[in-house]
Computed example of a mutant assay.
Amino acid sequence: MGVPQNKQELLEAIQTTHAKLWADLCTIPDARAHEVSMEGHAKDTLMSPADLVAYLVGWSLLVLKWCDRKAQGVPVDFPETGYQWNELGLLAQKFYADHAHQDYRTLLQQFAQVHVRILALVEACSEAQLYGAPWYGKYTLGRMIQFNTSSPNANARTRIRKWKKLHQLA
């Protein structure tokens, strides 16, 4: 699947990558979901499948926050208040910590809910809003949404499938 160039392609990319990842995430036994044995998002760190879901929830919530703040005319701290783009590993650790107390099924519910909210956001935008002009730096809103939803979902699926195979859960 190439980089989405319009609203319909963006919706398809988000839906397709989410559906494929969702199918894999739902087969992870609850007892193994918090097992810290997968390569983390920061160099030389490990995470659990639950941490990976927390990471995806965190980024989707950030996209929604960015859009909400921009719509209100409020400045946005990209990527997040207190973090720079060169500190994404630290931001990933924050996402893990934000959701560390949650059981795996609750995390999956949150992932499903934020997915619906992202789709609603995209549906509510016009083609021009998504792809007609730069939204952040040189990037359009559609590209920023893709960078932080369908793209990490595809990456996460690769990680999960590798982890499941390694742990004989495939």
Rank of each mutant, 00 (worst) to 15 (best):
Tyr136Phe: 15
Lys138Arg: 14
Asp44Glu: 14
Ala13Pro: 02
Leu61Phe: 05
Arg161Ser: 09
Thr45Tyr: 08
Ala124Met: 09
Leu62Ile: 07
Leu52Gly: 01
Thr81Gln: 14
Gly132Lys: 14
Asn6Tyr: 13
Ser126Trp: 03
Leu130Met: 11
Val57Lys: 03
His167Arg: 09
Thr27His: 09
Thr149Ala: 06
Ala19Met: 12
Tyr55Lys: 05
Asn86Asp: 15
Gln15Ala: 11
His101Lys: 12
Leu90Ser: 05
Phe95Arg: 01
Ala133Cys: 06
Ala112His: 14
His41Gln: 12
Lys65Asn: 09
Glu80Val: 02
Gly58Asn: 12
Val114Leu: 03
Asp30Cys: 04
Gln102Ala: 12
Pro29Leu: 11
Thr158Ala: 06
Val74Cys: 05
Gln146Ile: 00
Leu10Trp: 07
Arg157Thr: 06
Tyr104Asp: 08
Leu121Trp: 05
Asn6Ser: 06
Gln109Ala: 13
Gln8His: 10
Gly137Ala: 11
Met1Val: 00
Ala97Gln: 14
Ala50His: 02
Arg157Pro: 01
Leu11Ala: 07
Met47Gly: 03
Ala31Gly: 07
Gln8Trp: 07
Asp24Phe: 13
Gln113His: 11
Ala154Pro: 03
Leu130His: 10
Val53Ile: 13
Val63His: 04
Gln110Asn: 11
Leu108Cys: 08
Phe95Lys: 01
Lys20Ala: 10
Pro152Thr: 11
Gln109Asn: 15
Ala50Glu: 07
Val116Tyr: 07
Gln102Phe: 12
Pro79Asp: 08
Leu56Lys: 02
Leu141Thr: 04
Lys94Ala: 07
Leu56Gly: 00
Leu64Gln: 08
Asp68Ala: 13
Tyr139Gly: 01
Ile118Ser: 00
Pro134Arg: 10
Ala112Cys: 05
Ala33Thr: 12
Met38Glu: 08
Ile118Pro: 03
Pro79Tyr: 08
Lys20Gly: 03
Gln110Leu: 12
Ile160Lys: 04
Glu123Lys: 14
Val57Thr: 07
Trp85Phe: 13
Tyr96Lys: 04
Cys125Lys: 15
Gln102Ser: 13
Trp135Arg: 05
His99Arg: 12
Lys20Glu: 13
Met47Tyr: 07
Thr17Met: 00
Leu90Arg: 11
Trp59Glu: 05
Tyr131Phe: 15
Ser60Arg: 13
Gln5Arg: 11
Pro49Ala: 12
Tyr136Val: 12
Ala13Leu: 06
Asp68Met: 06
Lys165Asp: 09
Leu52Ala: 03
Tyr96Ala: 02
Val76Pro: 06
